[in-house]
Write a protein that binds this DNA or RNA. Structure first.
Length: 452
DNA sequence: GGCGTTACGGTTGAA
DNA sequence: TGTTCAACCGTAACG
């Protein structure tokens, strides 16, 4: 059995048997805890011992999974799908399987649905190690996502690629020059203070002293004449705080979903009035943010399974996710439709490997859709093991329903998670203990006791 | 056994 | 158009 994964224009074919075998090889129970064989090696050689490298997802013509011999070779850098050549290159595209049996795409973020699920389970009081096993995501990743969420309130990955917007805009350079001309003996730190005082920059985009010094040295130099850079490139109406919408990147209050709902649908400018947090660059989107948008989308019927061809299937193309898109769409109120589609489309089978068929039927997404990459492995993220979900409760992700949480439910459940939450709120002191009542009804999921 | 940290190979997109 | 660079990613392993 196979399924096709899509990553942008790349097609990823993944053998489900490979994933299943990778999981089964580490214990029939599915959970790593008991049967997992930890691949242990000295740190110096750990890269060469990566199971993911040894067990790439390969697909032969006959449908049987096999490991490409060259995948485990000593050559630096495992060949990527793009690098494969030959008559069967089109067939031998693959993702990777981690030690837990989960499928991931190296270099690419986990799907939002998984990220959301991680946060959700953590807030249910499930320990990160259990989350890791259940979702088949490495514990480092779980830890990372939770840490990020606790820090920023965002479950989304940071902006990948691109460059940070320059803080030394022509306007800033102009002001620096003015300051220097007005007071040739001014220090860089004084210029910095004046940039702040005059509102040319704020604390998030003010150039560093070293940058100012560099500007003074390189761009302003003798102070005699404005450089061609400033003269020719300065826009006629440079905003005083060109990157404020970036640097004061806010995330909405979980208790005010209204703004989120009406937030940053593509083309709809985001609303202000959020609390800026001192994080300079990466994007952030709160869970409630996403859910708010989801609710909005649900209300508008946009989630009725439409493909939304108008939106890029690439997560980085989502405004607010992609660094590039920040200026065009603040997206401060959450994900746009593509992000929602990512969650919606990322279906997971609660019954895991035993329900591959059902999963596949629910995963009829175009291969060109990147989220299809995760839509398939999504099932792999779920432990096929017996105790999850508990038999007495509804599954975490009913087949066909996907991992996408119902916006209203999770929004309510997440509402307690205020951005300014304290560390004490991060995790229950006793993982197996009671979760807040608001959470205990989330998805109707009973809070499982600690498995250890 | 759980978890924070980090090296590593990979992807991405602006310059 | 192709390359470089610096951001990010998740995994695996260490401690």
């Amino acid at each position: 059995m196979k399924f096709t994964l899509g990553l942008g224009s790349r097609a990823w074919r993944v053998s489900w048997e490979r994933a299943a075998a990778a999981a089964a090889g580490r214990g029939a129970g599915g959970a790593l805890g008991g049967g997992a064989q930890r691949v242990s090696s000295p740190r110096s050689g750990r890269r060469g011992s990566r199971l993911a490298r040894a067990l790439p997802l390969c697909l032969s013509r006959g449908g049987g999974a096999r490991a490409l011999p060259d995948c485990a070779g000593p050559s630096p850098g495992r060949p990527s799908a793009r690098q494969l050549a030959g008559p069967r290159a089109m067939e031998q595209t693959y993702g990777e399987v981690n030690q837990l049996g989960g499928v991931f795409v190296n270099g690419r973020p986990l799907p939002n649905a998984i990220r959301l699920r991680i946060v959700e389970l953590a807030q249910l009081g499930i320990r990160p190690c259990d989350i890791s096993r259940q979702l088949r995501v490495s514990h480092g990743c779980v830890s990372k996502i939770l840490a990020r969420y606790n820090e920023t309130g965002s479950i989304l990955p940071g902006a990948i690629g691109g460059s940070k917007p320059r803080v030394t805009t022509p306007n800033v350079v102009k002001h620096i020059r003015d300051y220097k001309q007005g007071d040739p003996g001014i220090f860089a730190w004084e210029i910095r203070d004046r940039l702040l005082a005059d509102g040319v920059c704020d604390k998030y985009n003010v150039p560093s002293v070293s940058s100012i010094s560099r500007i003074l040295r390189n761009k302003i130099g003798s102070l005699a004449q404005p450089g061609p850079y400033e003269a020719s490139k300065q826009p006629p109406s440079q905003p005083a705080l060109p990157y404020n919408h970036i640097y004061q990147y806010p995330y909405p209050s979980p208790v005010s979903p209204t703004g989120a709902k009406m937030g940053s649908h593509p083309g709809v400018p985001g609303t202000a009035g959020h609390v800026g947090i001192p994080r300079s660059w990466p994007s952030a989107h709160s869970v409630s943010n996403i859910l708010g948008i989801r609710t909005f989308m649900e209300q508008t019927g946009a989630l009725a399974g439409s493909e939304g061809a108008a939106y890029s299937p690439k997560m980085e193309d989502w405004p607010g996710v992609n660094r590039t898109a920040f200026p065009a769409s603040p997206a401060v109120n959450g994900l746009e439709k593509p992000a929602l589609e990512a969650d919606i489309k990322y279906t997971q089978s609660a019954s895991g490997l035993s329900a591959v068929g059902g999963f596949l039927s629910a995963c009829a997404y175009p291969a060109s859709n990147q989220h299809g990459v995760y839509s398939a492995p999504g099932g792999g993220y779920l432990t096929p093991g017996p105790p999850w979900p508990p038999a007495q409760g509804p599954p975490l992700a009913p087949p066909g329903a996907g991992v996408a949480v119902h916006g209203g439910e999770l929004a309510a459940a997440m509402a307690f998670k205020h951005p300014s939450r304290e560390a004490a709120d991060r995790k229950p002191s006793s993982p197996g203990g009671k979760a807040p009542d608001a959470l205990s009804s989330l998805h109707g999921l009973p809070i499982p006791a600690s498995t250890s």
